[in-house]
Amino acid sequence: MPHETIRTSRIEARIAPDALAIVKRAAELEGRSVSDFVVSAAQAAARRTIEETSLIRLSSEDQRHFVELLLNPPPLSPALVRAKDAHAQLFGS
């Protein structure tokens, strides 16, 4: 028994006639309805956007600097030492 998605939500968008023609043509080429094509394209774009904002991209130089700081961290600042002590008093070591 195939899994069928229950569609209960609706979105609307205004689109220029030339843009709609392109979307219709692309949907036809894939053998899909315009609605299915637009929903699929929007989901793919949304996933890409979420993925891209979840990644941190560093140059080679920044990567080396990051690893160096992990391997040889600088001494704690006085404020961080106080915060660490306060945390230990409240929650234990």
Rank of each mutant, 00 (worst) to 15 (best):
M1W: 02
P2M: 04
H3N: 12
H3F: 09
E4T: 07
T5A: 14
T8K: 09
S9K: 13
S9P: 07
R10Y: 07
I11Q: 08
E12W: 04
A13M: 03
A13P: 01
A13R: 01
R14C: 00
R14V: 00
R14M: 01
I15D: 01
A16F: 00
P17M: 04
P17R: 04
D18H: 06
A19F: 00
A19W: 00
L20R: 06
L20M: 09
L20T: 03
A21P: 08
A21D: 14
I22N: 11
V23M: 04
V23S: 01
V23C: 03
R25T: 03
A27D: 03
E28D: 13
E28K: 06
L29R: 15
L29S: 14
S33A: 12
V34K: 01
V34Y: 00
S35E: 15
V38Q: 02
V38Y: 02
V39N: 02
S40W: 14
A41S: 14
A42I: 03
A44N: 08
A45S: 05
R47F: 13
R47L: 14
R48H: 10
R48P: 02
T49I: 11
T49M: 12
T49C: 12
I50V: 15
E51P: 02
E51V: 03
E51T: 06
E52H: 13
S54V: 00
L55S: 09
L55R: 11
L55F: 09
L55I: 07
R57W: 10
R57I: 06
R57H: 14
R57L: 11
L58H: 02
S59M: 05
S59T: 12
S60R: 06
S60Y: 01
S60H: 04
E61T: 04
Q63T: 02
Q63L: 03
Q63N: 01
R64H: 09
R64N: 06
F66Y: 14
E68P: 03
L69D: 06
L69W: 00
L69T: 05
L71W: 10
N72D: 12
P74E: 15
P74S: 15
L76A: 11
S77D: 14
S77N: 13
S77C: 13
S77Y: 11
A79E: 15
L80Q: 15
V81D: 05
R82M: 04
A83S: 06
D85R: 09
D85G: 06
A86Q: 14
A86P: 05
A86T: 13
H87A: 13
H87V: 05
A88D: 08
A88V: 07
Q89R: 09
L90P: 00
L90V: 10
F91Q: 12
G92C: 15
